[in-house]
Simulated assay, not measured.
Amino acid sequence: MIQPDKEFLIKLAHTKMPFGKYKDRYLIDLPEYYVVWYHNKGFPKGPLGQMLETVYELKLNGLEELIRNIKRQFPK
């Protein structure tokens, strides 16, 4: 995983899923099984894929609260 910068993490904290069953849910709040499914299937190309890959790594390491804290500290 590439070390994300501050702006990337702030954007990730405020990004919602743009489509599908979990449309409009914050990426960090997606169910773990769904993010694992994307990991196995392949993440989409582009920024959304990078964010989902980061969410996967955060969930894998139990660090979801880090993003929730960022969302509170840097409101949109």
Rank of each mutant, 00 (worst) to 15 (best):
K45I: 01
Y22L: 03
K16A: 09
P18R: 03
M17L: 03
A13W: 08
N69L: 12
L66C: 08
G42C: 12
R68C: 04
L30D: 04
K21W: 04
M1C: 08
L58W: 00
G62S: 08
K45L: 08
V36S: 02
K71W: 02
K76L: 12
L66K: 13
N61R: 10
W37E: 15
K76S: 13
N40Y: 07
K45T: 08
G62H: 07
T15V: 11
K71V: 01
L30R: 08
N40K: 11
I28N: 10
P44Q: 05
H39R: 14
G49F: 02
R68G: 07
I67M: 05
P75D: 09
E32R: 12
E7W: 11
K11C: 15
G62M: 05
Y38I: 02
R25V: 14
Q50G: 13
E65I: 06
L27R: 03
Q50C: 08
F74A: 09
E53S: 13
Q73A: 15
P44G: 05
I67N: 02
N40P: 01
Y38C: 04
F74S: 11
Y26K: 06
Y33M: 08
L9D: 10
Y38T: 01
Y38A: 01
K21F: 09
A13M: 10
R72K: 15
L12K: 09
I2D: 15
